[in-house]
């Protein structure tokens, strides 16, 4: 019974993952009727954060089938922005009314988006903010809907700082160094630490990956016996760090924080192995973007930047 259920689940997921209801099978057919078509372009759907985001969008679409059509696309490799450029071009060729995009690169994607705008497509930027300077350079204004990564990270940093004493040694595990959200989060963490007078002894990249973060943390723990906290730029890395801390037998001394509030850290928050993470309500992020796109398309509002809520998650309010 279980296996049948599982098989059906896999099958259903395949159908959903292929991104379209049966009526949308003909990708090249022009969109007819009044319902606008919105293309959601994500980063890797293999990343839990983005798959959650996509699921949120699909749910929203299911509840509003009459109002709009939705096409969801993800890419294989987080850092391969050329794949995203191809997707943008495909969507423009499909003549969608709006593209809601989580850019893989803050700069390199802009020329393709400009071409989309020139073709009359409304573009909404979610999650990872496009570089404002480049936008000005090409004379483009694209509304941004997303969380303030800096603020979220600062909240997490402040929470952990309250558990430490001034002058304690802390370390930061960064994401991919070139990613804007990694930079913002690390800036937030650093600001919180500096404000609280903590001593940041090391800050290295874990490439967003659990295994890499685990190795980095193990090395940090060996090198700095007095380490009191390791702050991570996402939850996946926080899981790897927790394992490294446990392996070194210093779970009681070293605090770990994450970011994203993924399902796997829920239990960790409850048992205190991760003291804090930040929920940026990923499932609602794309929905916000879609809603703004719909409202602009309907002529109800003009495009403008919107900051979405970021909430600190700690033990008492863990799910």
């Amino acid at each position: 019974m279980r296996t049948i259920l599982f098989a059906m689940r896999v099958l259903a997921f395949c159908l959903i993952a292929s991104g379209c209801a049966p009526k949308e099978v003909d990708h090249n057919a022009p969109v007819t009727g009044k319902t606008p078509c919105i293309a959601l372009i994500m980063k890797s759907l293999a990343n839990e954060f983005f798959s959650t985001m996509a699921e949120g969008a699909r749910k929203h679409h299911n509840d509003n089938k009459k109002t709009y059509d939705l096409v969801v696309n993800g890419m294989k490799n987080e850092t391969d922005f050329s794949e995203q450029v191809t997707l943008i071009e495909q969507m423009v060729a499909r003549s969608v009314q709006s593209i809601v995009i989580a850019p893989a690169d803050s700069k390199a994607i802009i020329p393709a988006l400009k071409r989309a705008r020139d073709a009359g497509v409304l573009v909404i930027n979610i999650d990872n903010r496009l570089d404002p300077n480049v936008l000005i350079e090409v004379g483009l204004t694209i509304p941004f809907v997303g969380p303030d990564n800096w603020e979220g990270a600062k909240k997490a940093g402040e929470a952990v700082a309250r558990m430490l004493t001034k002058g304690d040694s802390v370390a930061i595990v960064e994401g991919i160094p070139t990613a804007m959200n990694s930079q913002e989060r690390c800036r937030g963490l650093r600001d919180a630490m500096n404000d609280a007078g903590m001593n940041i002894v090391s800050s290295q990249s874990g490439q967003w990956e659990m295994e890499k973060a685990n190795s980095i943390a193990a090395a940090m723990l060996s090198e700095y016996p007095s380490l009191k906290a390791i702050l991570c730029a996402n939850d996946s890395m926080a899981l790897g760090v927790v394992a490294a801390v446990a392996a070194s037998g210093r779970s009681a001394d070293v605090k770990v924080t994450g970011f994203d509030n993924t399902s796997a850290v829920g239990e960790m928050i409850v048992n205190g192995r991760i003291v804090a993470t930040v929920d940026q309500h990923g499932d609602q992020l794309a929905v916000h973007g879609i809603e703004i796109a719909l409202s602009v398309l309907a002529g109800n509002s003009t495009p403008k930047d919107t900051t979405t809520a970021v909430d600190l998650v700690m033990r008492k309010d863990a799910r």
């Binding site: 896999v10 997921f13 395949c14 759907l45 293999a46 990343n47 839990e48 798959s51 659990m210 939850d235 996946s236 899981l239 993924t262 399902s263 796997a264 850290v265 829920g266 239990e267 960790m268």
Partner: peptide, 13 residues
């Protein structure tokens, strides 16, 4: 692997 886990990290503990 992504299909099996629905792209989610499973915390085994």
């Amino acid at each position: 692997a992504y299909l099996v886990t629905r792209s989610q990290t499973k915390y085994i503990g």
